[in-house]
Design a protein around this nucleic acid. Structure first.
Lengths: 218, 218
DNA sequence: GCTCATTGCTACATGTCTGTAGCAACACAG
DNA sequence: CTGTGTTGCTACAGACATGTAGCAATGAGC
């Protein structure tokens, strides 16, 4: 009989290894987001690409290598987005307003998250079954980021003349920013970014020291 | 030969079903905390109690039922702890200071978490492989709690004369409280509870409407 | 059109966990 | 000490995912 009814599988289109690799990673990410990481099975990823298991093993040594590659890619994307978001600690004479620095940073961060939700979902709202290695790596990056925010806080609180624990302040800002990002991801469309930045600005304004001290002693 | 060397298994002590059930659940919780939920395997739980698999099946219909029971127990414990923490919305004439209400609530919450870390760890720092059903249930409870906090915020912000979005304020307080609790759990001993309550009080004091420059940015 | 390196497929062997059936040890009542 | 019900054990069968070996289809270059 002619192969008019290729019941099993219609011999998938051939792809060069690099493209296949990318395609498989994207499919794996979709599976993780929609049905959890435990749904990232060799068979599952292969099916999602209309391909059989040995094809996956052609691109990744084993399931662990696939997951590692997925985490690598997400981390890479997130970090490159973050690099554009966070300002350096301003120099001594810099006239930048600390409050506006925070608001601008929050705005940029939230827009970056909204612009690439698939990547940030995996980081901020880890789907079921996320590998421990991934949590470890995102937490390591969080610590680095926190260190940077701590530097900014030292500078900003001093400049503002606000007497607050800089460590906890940095952590609070970070926690709230991630919380806002989670709301954005969980319910896109409901929360315009300005909703959060306006709120942030209101709080900072409310916290303005009523009688501002001397701007700088030299 | 005498059974001097019971190589395989020394016939575990017999327990009535209720006690066995509790023991199995505790062992499962330990496994989840130490090695992730995927380590909760029938065999693993049984071994941890010095028992064989059919004993587990005597107490739970299957693995899913075991996990459900574990989630039930955690939820129950957490909710009964929370019930003692959160105050009702004060009546109209009540002279309670809103800021002190927040600080006292935070204090009580953090102490409740510190008093039962195994329960709260599972909720606030879900180990690897946590079942989606569990996340769904804790999130449902979070929504309820948030509703209550929203009521308190409406009252407190009005009474204080602070013009802030009550919904976001409630969410912010909740997010920060959970963040503080996570720090407590992740690194017990490093963070005295007063560290957080003092910081919280400092912020609220700084936000006292002493000299609000302009209420709204046109 | 043929050749041949490349890409994908079928089929197998293995390991780990689940869930069940039927037997064996214990301990308490009398 | 002996019966009897309860609790635990050994042993089996099946599901599902992994990872591998060897064959088959494809299509670009001559």
């Amino acid at each position: 009989m002619a192969p008019a009814t290729p019941l099993k599988r219609p011999y998938a289109a051939r792809l060069p290894p690099d493209e296949r690799r990318d395609q498989l990673l994207s499919a794996a990410l979709d599976l993780a987001i929609e049905r959890g990481f435990h749904a990232i099975t060799i068979e599952g990823v292969a099916r999602a690409c209309g391909v059989t298991r040995p094809v996956v093993y052609g691109c990744f040594a084993d399931r662990t290598a696939l997951l590692d590659a997925l985490v690598d890619r997400s981390e890479e994307r997130a970090l490159s987005a973050l690099a554009a978001v966070f300002p350096d600690v301003p120099a001594d004479g810099d006239p930048t307003d600390p409050d506006e620095l925070i608001v601008a940073g929050l705005d940029a961060y939230l827009r970056a998250v909204a612009a690439d939700p698939r990547t940030w979902r995996v980081i901020l709202l880890p789907p079921e079954g996320a590998p421990a290695a991934m949590a470890a790596r995102t937490n390591a990056q969080r610590r680095l980021l926190l260190r940077h925010l701590r530097g900014l806080s030292d500078w900003g609180l001093a400049r503002r003349g606000t007497a607050l624990d800089a460590d906890l302040f940095a952590r609070a800002v970070f926690t709230l920013a991630e919380g806002a990002a989670r709301l954005l991801l969980a319910d896109p469309g409901r929360w315009p970014v300005e909703h959060f930045t306006d709120f942030c600005r209101s709080i900072l304004v409310a916290m303005r020291p009523g009688a501002p001290p001397e701007p700088k002693p030299a």
